[in-house]
Write a protein that binds this DNA or RNA. Structure first.
Lengths: 213, 213, 213, 213
DNA sequence: TATGAATGAGCTTTCATTCAT
DNA sequence: GATGAATGAAAGCTCATTCAT
């Protein structure tokens, strides 16, 4: 839980009760969904009066957005921060495969320790235009450009097929997200050998986008 | 719309009003989600009294389930019906790639003409245990076995890598679903060259699961 | 009470419960004011579930407006209807004083049997732009023109001073309203000799606007 | 605003924050009414914490009463103070008309510089028994007696008709208040020639209560 | 004196569901 | 089968007031 509160970041400015509210909301939203969770339930679990929620968040939806928006940023952004891109060009990752491994590993761990947040994001994305907007902005302005740089770099190196970046990104993202959703949500109770699965996923992707021979 | 009503199948037994109710519910559920749609709105759009809905469906959730359950069966099942499997073994599809093409093409068209139904399924799956159960049953009892037969067949033929079927299925399903979700939901407004995209998707999958050389 | 329901007019189209709701609302709004009356109180007194109120009136304010708007029309309009104006010109009222008497008498009786409605109107006018708009429209389009015709007629006859109509109307309306408010609201418990008071009011007005000698 | 604070009188004993609270409350109450103004809004506009309001006024209603009560005294009283009455008997006003002019002029100016306060008084009078009581006390104990003295004096002088004082007071007050309400509230945006209107009002009153010939 | 987080009762409103016709 | 008025529980939200600091 403390991991997640870090993801939400501005913990310092929060009162103890507000932190309890956010924690309770995360639990309930991820378990039962936004519409199946009442504010009185949240207040109850947070050990707080219902009115207290509305001192901190004007509406129930504001609370949802306050929870979900940082996840969008933190789920997609960090790896694409300057540091990461520069690592690519400094040859920290000799092959695209190495980059892929670092990336998936990193995001896998993020997902693991922020599971409830990610569940909320996935479940509610369809219903809240505010969240969709934030997601599109993040993806369009940060993720795509960073991906483009990296893909161009490794294409130049002759490691990747001559497919449009857009197509490649879609396929990779799809494969990675699909793996994580299966791993953490659809079949979370299965006994997984994560290291093997990650490597198989990388192999699958490389088979699809990497240059043969 | 009539395509979709076919998917729901038991149209014959429905009164005209009931058909209107289901049509209205499909539209509204897929546009705004189950929880954002009120029964009075459904009644309104169906041109029916609110009470009429409850003559046909004991609860609002019953209406949802009545709409969604057939989609599960129809989205996954038909291709795996006896006819389909026998086609595989009768060498109707010489290569796995051919099977894949037929499969994706067929499901792509189904998705296209049942888009609202599939949106409802995807959006609500997370929140309704009844739907999850139906989905798991269908997937476990029909899809997996059929896939297994086909994969074993083409493995034997030396066309597929020696990966666990489960892994292969997950990756293929993920890739295909991811393609369709992008195509029809996330970026439905983009200008798509469907034939090209389908072929690239097949190439991507074959790269990942096909035997090299 | 049945008098008042007539004022509201469209009783025919109302369900019995709706009539009870309106009656209860009139009582409570006039006794305690709009903001001091809760919808649960109204429902209670009307012997109705709270939800029933909102089947008939989308919001609490809609209920207020539905009650108040007809009062505006009925308080100001009827006397100025065609019939009334034509009576003026057919010499039904030989002197302005006679017209005044008929007018005050008629409005006095209307006020008497619609007291709660008029209290609501006076009390809430200040706070609800919707009501102000309705009132201004009614006054500007019906009352003023009718008054103008009558005043011009009796000015021609040499019975009225040469004051601007606007000023005369303001003074007369003020005097008449002031009388009624004192009579029915401020000092409603006093023992009034209505006939005398009405005549004195007329005399006061005639002293102020009538031609001397 | 400083004019109004004078009206409220005990400014000396107020802390700066308290003064801000009162100013903010006057603005908001007069603009939107007591029930549409929240204490948090007042605190906000006053630049003060919400709790601070309740250090100075036990309840929100106390704040209203603290604002409105002095207005009642100051709106009606000053003219009837000893000084004023003695002026009457010292023949400072030869004719009743002169007294009337001085009175209306003086109250007109008071109203002009205390408009928000007077709006609050008029708007809230109907809903708060505390205010009604204060108003009745003031009117009964100060205004009526002073008026009686003056009216008797000018009746003796043969300038006024032989109407009951009560009736005359009612009519005069009604006319004067009605004029001011029209001037400052109902049609405050109209272009007024105040001097002319005041004189016409006096003429109207004199026509109604003055002795003919 | 001033703060502002916290309270909880109470508000208006929504909505799935019932039932007499 | 169809209606639609009525229900009442529960929702989200407001707000005057308290109190530890």
């Amino acid at each position: 839980m403390s991991d997640m509160m870090e993801t939400l970041r501005n913990e310092e400015k929060m009162t103890p009760k507000q932190i309890e509210i956010v924690k309770a909301a995360i639990e309930l939203f991820s378990e039962k969904g936004y519409y199946n969770t009442s504010t009185s339930e949240i207040a109850n679990r947070a050990g707080v009066a219902e009115g207290t929620i509305f001192r901190h968040y004007r509406t129930k939806k504001d609370l949802l957005v306050a929870i979900v928006t940082p996840v969008i940023t933190n789920f997609s952004a960090p790896v694409f921060a300057k540091k990461f891109v520069s690592q690519v060009f400094q040859n920290d990752y000799e092959h695209f495969e190495d980059l892929l491994y670092a990336f998936i590993k990193n995001r896998f761990e993020f997902a693991q320790s922020n599971l409830p947040l990610i569940k909320i994001l996935l479940q509610e994305l369809a219903f809240h235009p505010e969240i969709q907007t934030a997601y599109k902005k993040e993806f369009g302005e940060k993720v795509i450009p960073a991906f483009n740089q990296a893909l161009d770099f490794y294409k130049e190196k002759g490691e990747l097929r001559d497919l449009p970046n857009e197509t490649m990104i879609r396929m990779m993202v799809t494969t990675i997200l699909g793996f994580m959703i299966t791993r953490f949500i659809v079949q979370s109770d299965k006994d997984w050998d994560d290291e093997t699965e990650i490597n198989q996923t990388i192999a699958y992707i490389m088979g699809g986008v990497g240059k043969k021979g």
